[in-house]
Design a protein around this nucleic acid. Structure first.
Length: 202
DNA sequence: CAATAGATCATCT
DNA sequence: GATGATCTATTGC
């Protein structure tokens, strides 16, 4: 196999992967590997936020200091602080100027488990390490320093990995929002033990 | 099991 | 000054 063919199968996702509608990017991020330092996890749950037409999206109010990176080029991290305590990691989607994004909600830990347990003292089982948006940023050591980070170059990466087992995708409404709460924009790997909540189909 | 309270602060009204 | 894309511990059945 040529190097570029191998890259396409196991390499870091290129910017054009992200320059598509948020729901499409969300769906395709399932099964990819999020990597930071020695820690890595398989993405098993995501939510799409479609931008200006989505009352649940931060970008719904338009461009502010906080939402600036959402309006920037795709393939960057949007990390925000919530409930005075937790960080949430999003991936900026859509072409530049359109603020769609994907919230990464749960990971199946793959590597660096000892480090993850150290950062998540409350976790008793592997399933507790990164089964929620706030948990996974803790486990992976992601903070506001990563806001705006380029996922196609730099320490935080998303990679395709070889030997991806087949899986099917479940779709449900998004979790923890008030507005636009019925849109089917949450995507999970069906049957995964590592998702934030058991699936409610729609 | 399910339901609920409390922690705690950046952001925007 | 209110709110929020959460998590954990605790209470109650």
């Amino acid at each position: 196999m040529s190097w570029s063919a191998l890259e396409r199968r196991i390499g870091r996702l290129p910017r054009q992967f992200y320059a598509r509608p948020a729901a499409e990017v969300a769906r395709e991020l399932l099964g990819m590997a999020l990597v930071h330092g020695r820690c890595a996890g398989r993405i098993v749950e995501v939510e799409a936020y479609t931008g200006l037409d989505d009352r649940a999206a931060h970008a719904w109010h338009g461009l502010t200091n906080r939402t600036r990176v959402l309006f920037g080029p795709p393939g960057h991290a949007y990390v925000y602080f919530i409930y005075g305590m937790y960080y949430c990691l999003n991936v900026v989607a859509e072409p530049e100027g359109r603020p769609g994004c994907v919230l990464v909600r749960a990971l199946e830990p793959l590597a660096g488990l000892a480090e993850m347990y150290r950062r998540r003292p409350g976790a008793r089982r592997v399933e507790d390490l990164a089964s929620g948006p706030g948990k996974l940023t803790l486990a992976m050591g992601i903070t506001r320093r990563h806001n705006g980070a380029d996922l196609t170059a730099g320490p935080l990466e998303i990679r395709r990995f070889l030997a991806q087992p087949g899986f099917s995708i479940a779709v449900t409404p998004r979790i923890g929002i008030r507005h636009d709460a019925d849109r089917p924009l949450r995507f999970l790997i069906r049957g995964s033990r590592f998702v934030s909540r058991q699936q409610r189909l729609c």
